[in-house]
């Protein structure tokens, strides 16, 4: 393999990994607080991409405006999903909310079929992101630099919110002990809404960038990335934001490099993600950075 090809593979891997990581953060934050695996998260990712399409094609908004609007509306959708489908089940056994999230996932997929139709849509892609640049001997798609860079900014932003702000302190407190947090005055429902909003905004950003990289919209486009990001979150240690980032990037590299070095295995790309998950869980049941799991008292 030539070094210029390696650089391209490297950037592709970093791009895919960043996109997984952004989705994985949403899984891990919701799990950290509610011990809920939000299976509708992949559909939130899909909605983000479709909202941009809507904004550009139907409302004729400039692309950046459509992107910001889509992220905002997707965040609100995430908050609404929690309000309607999970909050009424807060006191119910955990499995009930899990099943509810599977229901929301199917509901949103089918809603997308009705609203956007199942016909795959082409997305608008700004030229400055897709015009190949030649740097030395390397052909670089600007997108593969833009996606990791923007993802990094978003991840650092999320980490800042969780570790350096007052609502972030509330999130970390609720994750360990809801009752004591309430005693201290933490508005638990508001913090949970914020968590869903933040996670959904990151998923929307990921969905939008995914659609730039793989420019075809379909109502089921969130299923596989959603599963992969879930694997990434578990790999990294679910509940840990740093773990979700490392898990996502790791998974991106494994998938791209596997196909790059062993093209004959390309068809097994998705299977390898799951094999990696099984192997890591066998040796480290709590993932790479996971804390020892304990049931909340």
């Amino acid at each position: 393999m030539t070094s210029s090809m390696f650089v391209q593979h490297f950037l592709n891997a970093l791009t895919l990994g960043s996109l997984y990581a952004l989705i994985a953060i949403g899984y891990t934050m919701v799990y950290g607080i509610l011990r809920l695996i939000n299976f509708a998260h992949g559909e939130i990712f899909m909605l983000g991409a479709y909202f941009v399409f809507w904004g550009v094609v139907l409302l004729h908004l400039p692309w950046p405006v459509a992107v910001l609007g889509a992220i905002l509306i997707t965040a609100l959708t995430g908050v609404l999903v929690d309000r309607v489908a999970y909050r009424p089940l807060r006191e119910a056994p955990r499995i009930s909310a899990l099943i509810s999230s599977i229901g929301v996932s199917f509901f949103l997929q089918n809603l997308a079929v009705v609203v956007f139709s199942a016909i795959p849509r082409q997305v608008y892609r700004p030229e400055w992101l897709t015009k190949v640049m030649i740097v030395g001997k390397v052909r670089v798609l600007p997108l593969t630099l833009f996606v990791p860079a923007l993802s990094l900014v978003l991840m650092l932003g999320s980490i800042y919110i969780v570790y350096k702000t007052k609502p972030g302190l509330g999130m970390r407190a609720i994750a360990k002990d809801i009752e004591t947090s309430r005693l201290m005055g933490v508005p638990v429902n508001r913090i949970i809404s914020l968590t869903f909003g933040l996670g959904s905004a990151l998923a929307a950003a990921s969905g939008i960038m995914w659609a730039l990289r793989y420019p075809q919209l379909q109502p089921i486009m969130g299923v596989i990335p959603g599963f992969k990001a879930f694997i990434a979150a578990v790999l990294g240690g679910i509940g840990s934001i740093g773990g979700a980032v490392v898990g996502g990037v790791l998974l991106g590299f494994v998938e791209i490099m596997l196909v790059a070095f062993m093209p004959e295995l390309a068809g097994f790309r998705d299977a390898f993600a799951f094999v990696l998950l099984i192997v890591i869980l066998l040796f480290r049941p709590t993932g790479l950075f996971g804390e020892r799991l304990e049931d909340k008292v």
């Binding site: 007052k166 302190l169 509330g170 970390r172 407190a173 360990k176 002990d177 009752e179 004591t180 947090s181 005693l183 201290m184 005055g185 933490v186 804390e291």
Partner: peptide, 30 residues
């Protein structure tokens, strides 16, 4: 708690993963 009644609960209920300083900040959340 916002009205001025605070409880130091049974079993202390310190948040083990937060620093002492963060625990104090949490107490002032209201």
């Amino acid at each position: 708690v916002r009205q001025g009644i605070a409880l130091a609960p049974e079993g202390r209920r310190i948040l083990p993963h937060l620093t002492v300083f963060e625990n104090l900040q949490l107490g002032a959340y209201s």
